[in-house]
Write a protein that binds this DNA or RNA. Structure first.
Length: 294
DNA sequence: TTAAATGTTTAAAT
DNA sequence: CATTTAAACATTTA
């Protein structure tokens, strides 16, 4: 599940907590989850934590990078004593004892902190690759990383992502329903099933509309809606709150902020009188208000 | 029992 | 060729 906001929240949490620590040991419980030789990463210091689209990178000294993709059910849980940083797919057991039965890989740091990579459906992965990076943007990053990251569109929260860029990129799939195009990572990076629906709700655009039918005014509203939905979610801590909490203090995740996602049958929050509907597009559930999304 | 689940890739069908 | 849709991956929960 995790989409851009959830991964970003994890990134911020880990950045604060593990940069400067030394990775002592990597324990692999599910071999398919980890690609590369874990021994190469052991006894290396964490230099940086970054995000691109829905992928997370942990740079290690010695020009190595641990790349993570959480796919649908991945979660990262950093535990040190009573303190936890939690993020990713929201489940109840992420608050409980670690490792849990969905723990696939455990990273142990020299100060005793442990980072658990949990993934119920085992779609997620971790790859150890060479960094070959400079700090001058993505074009400068190593070929190996570029290959793993694939062809990704612009980051929607960067300043350079204007409504014109949104329009230009979406129009590469002009015949597609706008909601389906929004989830295409090569057009815009990081938007998945939740925030595609949420952004369109904020923009008051029907998810079934084909891209070519959108006016400039609608592209502008959609641009605004994307930024607002992502930023709101990041501020709220993503759908899972990756805050620094005690085991007891953890509460209140599960999409409290969503307007339409998972709200089938409920009244539209705009009080327009409409009822949230669920339809299937490209095999995925889409939620929208048929009354005020035109 | 069947369906669906915050993702992505690839094969098959239009 | 350009698009779309379905299937696959693996597991749990409603």
């Amino acid at each position: 599940m995790p989409e851009l906001p959830e991964v970003e929240v994890i990134r911020v949490g880990l950045q604060k907590k593990i940069v400067g620590k030394t990775l002592k040991k990597i324990e692999i419980l599910n071999p398919k989850t980890f690609q590369g030789n874990p021994k190469e990463a052991e006894n290396k210091k964490v230099v940086d934590v970054w995000r691109r689209a829905k992928m997370l990178g942990i740079d290690l000294a010695g020009n190595l990078t641990l790349l993570f993709h959480l796919k649908l059910t991945g979660q990262l849980i950093l535990v040190k004593g009573e303190e936890r940083v939690i993020g990713g797919h929201p489940t109840e057991d992420m608050k409980g004892q670690m490792p849990s039965n969905s723990t696939r890989v455990i990273f142990e740091f020299s100060d005793g902190a442990k980072l658990y990579f949990n993934d119920q459906r085992k779609f997620g992965w971790i790859k150890l690759v060479k960094s070959q990076m400079s700090r001058n943007g993505w074009g400068e990053r190593g070929q190996e990383i570029e290959k793993v990251l694939g062809e990704l569109g612009p980051e929607p929260l960067e300043k350079s992502f204007t409504w014109e860029v949104l329009k230009e990129n979406l129009l590469k799939r002009k015949n597609m329903p706008v909601k389906v195009a929004l989830m295409n990572q090569s057009l815009i990076a990081g938007i998945g099933n939740i925030y595609a629906s949420e952004s369109l709700f904020l923009a008051k655009i029907d998810p079934r509309r084909k891209v070519f039918s959108l006016s400039d005014a609608e592209f502008k509203k959609l641009h605004q809606g994307i930024r607002e939905s992502l930023e709101t979610a990041i501020k709220a801590g993503g759908s899972t709150r990756a805050h620094f909490v005690n085991v007891e203090g953890e509460r209140g995740y599960y999409l409290d902020f969503a307007n339409v996602y998972g709200k089938e049958g409920q009244l539209c929050r705009r009080r327009c009188g409409g009822k949230i509907e669920k339809i299937i597009q490209a095999g995925r559930g889409t939620y929208f208000c048929p009354n005020c999304q035109k």
